[in-house]
Amino acid sequence: MPQIDLTEVVVRLAARRPASGTFVVGITGAVAAGKSVFARALTEHLAADGATVEQVATDGFLFSNARLAELDLSNQKGFPPSYDHTALRAALENVRHGPTVFPGYSHVTYDVDPGLARTIDRPDVLVIEGLNLIPTHGPSLIDSLIYLDAPEYDLEAWYIARFMGLWEAAEHDPTSFYARFRAMSRPEVEGLARMVWEKVNLKNLRDHILPARDQADLVVRKGPGHQILAVEMRG
Score class of each variant (00 low, 15 high):
residue 111 D to E: 09
residue 111 D to W: 08
residue 113 D to L: 05
residue 114 P to T: 04
residue 114 P to Y: 02
residue 115 G to M: 06
residue 115 G to F: 01
residue 115 G to T: 04
residue 115 G to I: 01
residue 116 L to I: 04
residue 116 L to G: 03
residue 116 L to C: 05
residue 116 L to M: 14
residue 117 A to H: 06
residue 117 A to R: 01
residue 118 R to N: 00
residue 118 R to F: 01
residue 119 T to Q: 14
residue 119 T to H: 08
residue 119 T to G: 06
residue 120 I to Y: 05
residue 120 I to L: 07
residue 120 I to R: 11
residue 121 D to F: 01
residue 121 D to A: 10
residue 122 R to W: 01
residue 122 R to Y: 08
residue 123 P to Y: 10
residue 124 D to N: 15
residue 124 D to M: 13
residue 124 D to C: 13
residue 124 D to R: 12
residue 125 V to K: 03
residue 125 V to I: 15
residue 126 L to K: 02
residue 127 V to T: 07
residue 127 V to G: 03
residue 127 V to L: 12
residue 128 I to N: 03
residue 128 I to G: 02
residue 129 E to W: 00
residue 130 G to I: 06
residue 130 G to S: 09
residue 130 G to N: 07
residue 131 L to P: 02
residue 132 N to K: 03
residue 132 N to T: 06
residue 133 L to E: 00
residue 133 L to D: 00
residue 133 L to I: 06
residue 134 I to L: 05
residue 134 I to W: 03
residue 135 P to F: 00
residue 135 P to E: 03
residue 136 T to C: 08
residue 136 T to Q: 12
residue 136 T to K: 04
residue 136 T to A: 11
residue 137 H to I: 13
residue 138 G to T: 11
residue 139 P to D: 15
residue 139 P to F: 02
residue 139 P to A: 15
residue 139 P to V: 07
residue 139 P to M: 07
residue 140 S to V: 02
residue 140 S to F: 03
residue 140 S to R: 07
residue 141 L to Y: 00
residue 141 L to S: 12
residue 141 L to C: 08
residue 141 L to N: 11
residue 142 I to H: 09
residue 142 I to C: 10
residue 142 I to K: 07
residue 142 I to F: 12
residue 142 I to Q: 08
residue 142 I to V: 15
residue 143 D to G: 15
residue 143 D to T: 11
residue 143 D to V: 09
residue 144 S to P: 01
residue 144 S to K: 01
residue 145 L to T: 02
residue 145 L to M: 10
residue 146 I to Y: 06
residue 147 Y to F: 15
residue 147 Y to N: 08
residue 147 Y to P: 05
residue 148 L to I: 11
residue 148 L to Y: 10
residue 149 D to G: 01
residue 149 D to I: 03
residue 150 A to D: 10
residue 150 A to T: 11
residue 150 A to C: 11
residue 150 A to N: 12
residue 151 P to A: 11
residue 151 P to N: 08
residue 151 P to R: 13
residue 152 E to N: 06
residue 152 E to L: 12
residue 153 Y to P: 01
residue 153 Y to F: 06
residue 154 D to N: 09
residue 154 D to C: 07
residue 155 L to G: 08
residue 155 L to M: 07
residue 155 L to D: 06
residue 156 E to T: 11
residue 157 A to M: 12
residue 157 A to K: 14
residue 157 A to S: 15
residue 158 W to H: 14
residue 158 W to K: 07
residue 158 W to R: 15
residue 158 W to V: 03
residue 160 I to D: 05
residue 160 I to Q: 10
residue 160 I to S: 07
residue 160 I to L: 14
residue 161 A to N: 14
residue 161 A to L: 14
residue 161 A to Q: 15
residue 161 A to E: 15
